[in-house]
């Protein structure tokens, strides 16, 4: 028996959400009294792979072949499922990233495993049961799912589990699973990845703005505040609908759901569909000139006032906080 964790790389590096997944998988392995095996696919340097042992990987399978250098959903799912079989894995853990969302269900079908996506807590394994809490109803509720299959596939919501360092050793082995040509049909034509900015789904801090900002020309101060804080930027739906901001920044029921440590909402009314995507943020700050804006009902901190006056002052305050740090 074992627990297997898939460690996705972005341009050869592991992000924090991957170390969260490894830490989570290590805790699951400890609960089941077994070892943790990581599988990496693509071109990742040995020193990067060696980091996985620090979070509890007892062994890392390294799949670094020409065919699998870039992500192909089908082929990656096949290789991960093969590794799970070879290592007799009872639980397979992935990060619920965009790629993870494509992989987990395919791996689940291959292994006849229950797929629990968007897990937010460790499983309850008392008495041999296997129950996992996940978010449901677009973050308006949680559902506890009991898996009854022998193998379980879990995808972990980013920022839901902390990174835990463990003193431990792990070795790295090459792993070569045969790949079927049928699984390699997708051809990547172009990849665009902004590496200078914090990506929204992984972000710990998010500065978001809505229609109250009046127009795209006013986002300079939002970007400045975000970059000073090391935060990602987000927006409400009407803002991306009007092309003031890219669709990838749209959060909410029909955008992406996020759960950062801090969400600052500026000039956003707090419609139920918007809240659905952000209400699991740990701390919520609202800046709105309307004291009746529904967002204040779910906020931890609020300022009733004009964003155009307040945000520049916040920028100054963050600068002086950093200067004194």
């Amino acid at each position: 028996m074992s627990v297997l964790v898939y460690v996705e790389n972005a341009e050869g590096k592991f992000k924090k959400s991957i170390f969260e997944a490894v830490s989570y998988a290590k805790s699951v392995a400890a609960q089941l009294d077994t070892s943790l095996i990581a599988i990496s696919i693509g071109n990742v340097a040995q020193d990067e792979l060696a980091k996985l042992a620090k979070y509890g990987a007892n062994k890392t399978l390294n799949v670094n072949t020409e065919q699998l250098k870039t992500f192909v959903n089908q082929a990656y799912a096949s290789v991960i499922a093969e590794a799970a079989k070879k290592e007799n894995a009872e639980v397979v853990v992935l990060s619920n990233s965009f790629s993870g969302k494509g992989l987990a269900p395919r791996i689940g079908v291959k292994l006849e495993a229950a797929v629990i996506s968007g897990a937010i807590e460790l499983p309850d394994t008392t008495g041999g049961q296997f129950k996992v809490k996940r978010s449901a109803f677009s973050n308006k509720a949680f559902a506890t799912v009991e898996a009854t299959s022998k193998v379980k596939v879990i995808s972990l919501t980013p920022n839901a589990y902390q990174v835990i360092e463990k003193a431990g050793e792990g070795n790295i082995e090459d792993f070569n699973a045969p790949v079927d040509q049928q699984d390699l049909k997708a051809v990547i034509k172009e990849v665009v990845r902004a590496t200078d900015k914090v990506s929204l789904p992984d972000a710990e801090l998010v500065v978001s703005a809505g229609r109250g900002l009046k127009g795209p020309e006013n986002w300079g101060m939002i970007e400045e505040l975000a970059s000073l804080l090391g935060a990602a930027t987000a927006c409400s739906k009407p803002v991306s609908d009007a092309d003031w901001r890219p669709h990838s920044e749209h959060v909410g029921q029909t955008g992406i759901a996020i759960s950062p440590n801090l969400y600052i909402a500026i000039g956003i009314s707090g419609a139920i569909q918007h809240l659905a995507g952000v209400s699991s943020s740990k701390v919520i700050v609202v800046i709105n000139k309307d004291p009746e804006a529904p967002f204040f009902k779910v906020a931890d901190y609020g300022i009733v006032g004009d964003a155009f006056e307040i945000v520049p002052k916040l920028i100054e305050a963050v600068k002086s906080l950093k200067a004194n740090a």
């Binding site: 006849e112 009991e146 009854t148 906020a299 901190y301 609020g302 004009d306």
Partner: peptide, 23 residues
């Protein structure tokens, strides 16, 4: 074949009331 089943739902704990800061 049934591989999993929802056994319980919860709703998020209500947040405390908002702390307002003077504009």
């Amino acid at each position: 074949e049934q591989l999993a089943q929802i056994v319980k739902f919860d709703t998020p704990a209500p947040r405390g009331s908002v702390k307002l800061i003077d504009a």
